[in-house]
Design a protein around this nucleic acid. Structure first.
Lengths: 108, 108
DNA sequence: AAGGTGAGTTAGTCATTGCTTACCGTAAGT
DNA sequence: ACTTACGGTAAGCAATGACTAACTCACCTT
């Protein structure tokens, strides 16, 4: 229960293509902002803004190293999202199957 | 090796709060458009548009029943997204741990 | 101490999108 | 056939958001 970011924030964060790209680069290995900006077709401030969204969603964290800031994954936030999704899919599909079986019954 | 194109659509589809609400209603049990619109604080055409986004993302499917259209989950699309995400989280966290261990080594 | 480099913030622009109202096609009942 | 119910589509509007350029601050050289 640290700063439990809403699930909506995580979806929103990952719904933008550029932001997903940044996130995947960070996932490969920790990187500084300038390095990320070099791999992506937008300016450095834009990357900075994307990183802020990802950070507020609990998906990445940053660490100051001299004048640079190194961004890396925030595994706890990711695990949290992951387990939420697992529950979400299970619930949904369970309900779906329940309805399907009830439908079978009626059809007979 | 970025995204399979539909992954972004799925995230986008689920990033909107109203659309998540519609999706969860459909997940509970199949429903007609008007029924969904009655449960949600937006107009029927708005729900129609949300349903189209969800459908294009492969999350729901529809079936004509008389003059009504019944929307239900599209379990194959959901399973696809789910397994993509599982792979994604595993890859990411594996890379994260690899970096963490390499860092330990250097620190010694 | 001074210049250079790395990064977050602000202001402003332009495109996207979520919403509503109005309209149109289709199915079903009388 | 007419009418009513259901739902998708179109046009238009307001709000959100992704981006850039310009600024400022912090750190790291020399």
């Amino acid at each position: 229960m640290t700063n439990s970011p809403s699930i909506g924030q995580a979806f929103t964060a990952l719904s933008d293509a550029t932001r997903r790209e940044v996130f995947e680069l960070v996932a490969e290995r920790p990187r500084a902002v300038g390095e990320l900006a070099a791999q992506v077709p937008v300016s450095r401030p834009a990357v900075s803004q994307h990183l802020r969204v990802l950070k507020e969603a609990g998906l990445v964290e940053d660490e100051a190293v001299g004048a640079r800031r190194i961004y890396k994954l925030h595994p706890e936030g990711i695990a949290e999202l992951r387990s939420y999704l697992d529950g979400f899919w299970s619930r949904s599909l369970r309900a779906f199957k329940a309805v399907a079986e009830a439908g079978d019954k009626e059809d007979r």
